[in-house]
Computed example of a mutant assay.
Amino acid sequence: MKKILSSIIDGKGFDIALVALPLTFLLTLSGIPLVYNVLMSFQQVDLFSLGTFGRPFVGFKNYTELFAQLETSPILLNTALFVSASIAGQFVIGFGLALFFWMNFPGASWMRGLFLVSWVMPGLVVGAIWSWILSGDFGVLNFFLREIGVTDGNIFWRSDPHYSLWAVIIANIWLGTSFNMILLSVGLSGIPKDLYETAELDGANALQRFWTITLPMMRATIGAVIALGLIFTLQQFDLFAAITSGGPHNSSNVTQYWAWELSFRQYDFAKGATISVIMIVFVMFASIVYVRSTRHEVRG
């Protein structure tokens, strides 16, 4: 022990300690709950056995029973639609805003800063704001749609099964668009202006320059943005809790909210842990894609 302390004091082991201490802290706070959750998905756990360690091991029974439930397929489809629509909307609008502010016109910097307000706001606050906007009787969105002639009456976004999931998707797109815009703006700033000037002299129009220069040069950044969007979207819980609570009749329910319902409303902790493990697999896959994208960008 004295040798380790003396080496750290001398500076020889300082780099090791600098990595080991936060790594130990991270593994303690994240690794232990993760292992505990994985083990619980293979056990029979209810409200009475939650605080004990004598829980019977049931193998993959929780997984087979989970996929045999009638509500599993609709909720998985809702999750796929929520994730794909949210990521697509955030990316397309964020990329458009990034290209718009890339022109560097007067006032672009402070206008770009205003868009970050949505990202720094807590999810429950964003959910409360959009609950008012999407209100069926006095919501701003219904008023706007009636004024431009899209609808004749009110749309009950939060209570209509046909629109409830889209209500959360719209709110989530608004929440994550600014984050996409900032990351894509950083990627755009790394493209040399000389490439565009040369292409313009060769007769390439704006669309051709976008397809031949912008997209290829932004490939690593786009991969990182999509991977981060997948991670954040799969973790989104606050908007569902504030806007629809997964209803009506599970029409807006997704895996992350269903895991909470099973654990803390139905007290089926084993099934809730099972869903969490499945989500962890997808998040780890997205994390691998993100790490590979950033590594490619650094090498480039």
Results as ranks from 00 to 15, higher is better:
Trp132Thr: 09
Ser178Phe: 09
Ser159Ala: 14
Leu141Phe: 07
Asn154Met: 10
Phe138Arg: 15
Val140Arg: 13
Trp174Asp: 02
Val186Arg: 07
Ala128Asp: 06
Trp157Val: 09
Ser131Arg: 15
Asn142Glu: 10
Tyr163Pro: 01
Leu188Lys: 01
Val125Lys: 07
Ala128Leu: 14
Ala128Pro: 02
Leu141Met: 14
Ser164Gln: 04
Leu141Pro: 10
Gly139Glu: 00
Ala167Ile: 09
Thr177Lys: 05
Asn172Val: 05
Gly136Glu: 03
Ala167Ser: 15
Ser185Gln: 10
Ile173Thr: 04
Gly187Ser: 07
Ile133His: 09
Val150Asp: 01
Gly139Lys: 11
Met121Ala: 08
Gly136Asn: 08
Gly136Leu: 11
Val117Met: 10
Trp157Leu: 12
Ala171Glu: 00
Leu145Thr: 14
Ser118Ala: 12
Ser178Met: 09
Leu145Asp: 13
Phe144Ala: 05
Leu145Arg: 13
Trp166Phe: 15
Trp130Arg: 10
Gly127Val: 09
Val168Gln: 08
Asp152Tyr: 08
Pro161Gln: 07
Val117Leu: 14
Val117Trp: 09
Trp130Asn: 09
Asn180Met: 08
Ile148Tyr: 11
Val117Ser: 10
Val125Ser: 09
Arg146Glu: 12
Ala128Trp: 10
Leu141Thr: 06
Asn180Tyr: 11
Ile129Tyr: 04
Ile182Gln: 02
Val125Cys: 09
Gly187Pro: 04
Met121Glu: 04
Leu134Gly: 05
Thr151Glu: 03
Arg146Ser: 02
Met121Leu: 15
Val126Asn: 07
Met181Trp: 04
Asn142Trp: 12
Leu188Gly: 05
Ser178Thr: 08
Phe156Met: 09
Ile169Tyr: 11
Ser178Lys: 12
Phe143Cys: 00
Ser135Gln: 11
Ser159Pro: 00
Thr151Ala: 04
Ser118Pro: 04
Asn154Arg: 14
Val126Thr: 13
Gly136Lys: 13
Leu141Asp: 03
Ser131Val: 01
Tyr163Arg: 05
Leu141Ser: 14
Trp132Asp: 14
Ser164Cys: 05
Leu184Thr: 03
Val117Cys: 07
Trp130Leu: 11
Phe143His: 10
Phe156Ser: 10
Gly176Ser: 10
Phe156Thr: 06
Val126Phe: 07
Pro122Ile: 09
Ala128Cys: 00
Asn154Pro: 02
Ile133Cys: 14
Leu141His: 08
Gly149Asp: 06
Leu141Gly: 14
Ala167Leu: 15
Pro161Met: 02
Ser135Phe: 10
Leu184Asn: 06
Leu165Ile: 01
Leu134Val: 05
